[in-house]
Nucleic acid binder design. Structure first.
Lengths: 111, 111
DNA sequence: GTCGTTCCCATCGTCTATCGATGGGAGAAT
DNA sequence: ATTCTCCCATCGATAGACGATGGGAACGAC
């Protein structure tokens, strides 16, 4: 029974990651997941069952807006775009995340 | 209705913080909370309803062991001490946390 | 032309962790 | 004696992530 830490994500950071990804332009869910995996060298593995609920969340909060279209591979896809308030939220979350990580580093005494 | 981010902690990091704190020597719950708040300049605010369940968790996993005693203020207190496997766990969690934060930074493009 | 693969959507149920509220007891200080 | 600080702990609600599952539509290979 290995006590293997099996979390693919730091809980509470998914919204931040999605919002930041969307600053590169509107993107569909699958694309967002791909991007996160690629940029993070496969460290960040967002499952679809984490991703889509998160996108709903962001949409209901008005931080992204969705529209149907066709993907670069000509498939039916839902594109998510950052809204103005979404951009503000990104700033807030980014700041808050930095604050937390800094605090944790102080505890860890990380060089 | 301000959408104020009101989390006192990065979820998933509490065990790590506690384990690290205990490397300074055995400590009781209240002391651990005080230490985290102090070192982090009051950024990390661990409520008792987060702390005590966490300590149970750690205890059941064999990462800390508990013993009753008297605090420096002569109060009945339960002291928690790191075990050998707890130290290993600390190493693992520290490493994993670093990996995650690095990955997130890659996404954020943080300077 | 059908078969497998990749792409893309989404939900349901479970689990785990954090948190607000709550309750209690025992020194110490006034 | 009353109040304050210290120190323990649990319960119920909430939220977030995840495994499993179930589509459907384009594309290439055969």
């Amino acid at each position: 029974m290995g006590t293997t830490d099996n979390s693919d994500l730091l809980p509470g950071t998914l919204d931040l990651l999605i919002l930041k990804t969307l600053t590169r332009g509107a993107q569909h869910g699958y694309g967002i997941a791909r991007h996160l995996a690629t940029v993070s060298d496969d460290v960040l593995q967002v499952g679809e069952s984490s991703l889509y609920p998160a996108l709903q969340r962001l949409r209901l909060n008005g931080w992204v807006k969705a529209s149907w279209g066709a993907s670069e591979n000509n498939r039916r896809a839902r594109f998510y775009a950052l809204t103005a308030t979404g951009r503000k939220q990104l700033t807030r979350e980014r700041h808050e995340f930095g604050r937390m990580v800094l605090a944790i580093h102080k505890v860890l005494g990380t060089s």
